[in-house]
């Protein structure tokens, strides 16, 4: 098949076939990310703004460079997908991360995570998370060093995230577990986008009302994580944190609402979406409770991304009149 004659064919997501709607959807995603972006600037001030800007710029420049190398029209840049990847990547980074690392992450996200697969619609893994996974493995110390939000004054040498506190510093028995209230408003340490649960939910509400994202995915993730952590919490509340804590803490909300719901890398059919979402929640629970890391949202979404082609194949709705397989 001569590829040059193809004009922008998207394989895995039929609802994207209407070309005009791609920029529209992407634009609404950008709008929905604004509350969380403003929250991060409020909590981490100038650092957050700098990180957001450099990731955004690096993503757009990399995208343009690859489009030029692959001899694709530059107007694809305007579909907004690269901008979303840049913003999402910045939201998953610790505020103290040196800018050059953030830029490397954005280049990897667009270059390896998206363009190497053939551009928008062809990537298997969420590009922003590919960039973050690269940074996590390349610069593990910088990626796990946290600074407190601007309004908290602390004296300790290192500052832990609520989940890190829970996992490595026995926060429950020490009585230092972050309160749910603080998690909700966002006055805690962590990545740019994992501070305020409120801002994230506001943005996602807009997307859900517009039906730009599949509600089954966030609901499924939260449900299965709550169930999993709930069982352990009920058996031993002195050791395990409550399901509500697990839902509000860390990058669960930004992951469930904005990353797992990425149309290119999530299943098409409702059944597939349920399986995918329940799987993500379960893997997050396993990593948080028994794994070596405090947080597992990134790896579990990437892990379940890998199953999406398979889920799409086996949960394809029966075409009307097609015989039922027994």
């Amino acid at each position: 098949m001569p590829e040059k004659n193809n004009s922008f064919i998207i394989q895995s997501s039929p609802h994207l076939r209407e070309k005009d709607s791609v920029p529209k959807i992407m634009f609404s995603v950008i709008i929905s990310l604004l509350p969380a972006a403003f929250a991060s600037v409020y909590f981490f001030r100038f650092r957050a703004a700098l990180l957001l800007f450099s990731c955004l710029a690096a993503s757009l420049i990399t995208e343009a460079l690859f489009l030029w190398l692959r001899k694709r029209p530059l107007r694809y840049l305007l579909d907004g997908s690269a901008a979303i990847t840049g913003i999402l990547l910045a939201m998953t980074l610790p505020p103290s991360l040196p800018l050059e690392f953030a830029i490397i992450g954005a280049v990897v996200a667009i270059g390896l995570g998206k363009q190497a697969f053939g551009g928008l619609g062809h990537n298997i893994f969420n590009p922003a998370l590919v960039g973050r996974a690269f940074l996590q493995t390349a610069f593990p110390v910088a990626m796990t060093t946290w600074i407190p939000p601007a309004m908290i004054k602390v004296n300790t040498a290192t500052f832990a995230t609520p989940l890190g506190n829970l996992k490595f510093q026995d926060a429950i028995s020490q009585g230092t577990l972050t309160s749910l209230e603080e998690l909700f408003w966002g006055n805690v340490g962590g990545c740019l986008g994992e501070t305020s649960a409120l801002a994230l939910m506001l943005g996602a509400l807009y997307l859900l009302l517009r039906r730009s994202i599949d509600w089954r995915i966030p609901v499924g993730i939260i449900l299965s994580l709550s169930l999993f952590t709930g069982i352990f919490w009920l058996t031993n509340p002195g050791k395990y944190a409550s399901p509500l804590f697990h839902v509000l803490a860390g990058s669960l909300l930004i992951g469930a609402l904005f990353m797992a719901t990425d149309m290119v890398t999530s299943p098409i059919s409702p059944l597939g979406a349920w399986i995918y979402a329940l799987g993500i929640g379960l893997v997050i629970g396993l990593i948080r409770l028994f794994g070596g890391y405090a947080e597992g949202v990134m790896y579990s979404i990437l892990f379940m991304n890998a199953f999406v082609p398979l889920l799409n194949k086996y949960t394809r709705p029966r075409i009307l009149g097609e015989e039922r397989k027994t």
Partner: peptide, 24 residues
């Protein structure tokens, strides 16, 4: 010692400092 103490003087004679980011 968790979290890691910033200077070795803070440690008691039977305490070992944690490597930041490598608790396990």
């Amino acid at each position: 010692r968790k979290p890691a103490a910033s200077s070795p003087e803070e440690l008691s004679p039977s305490e070992i400092n944690t490597i930041t980011g490598a608790t396990i």
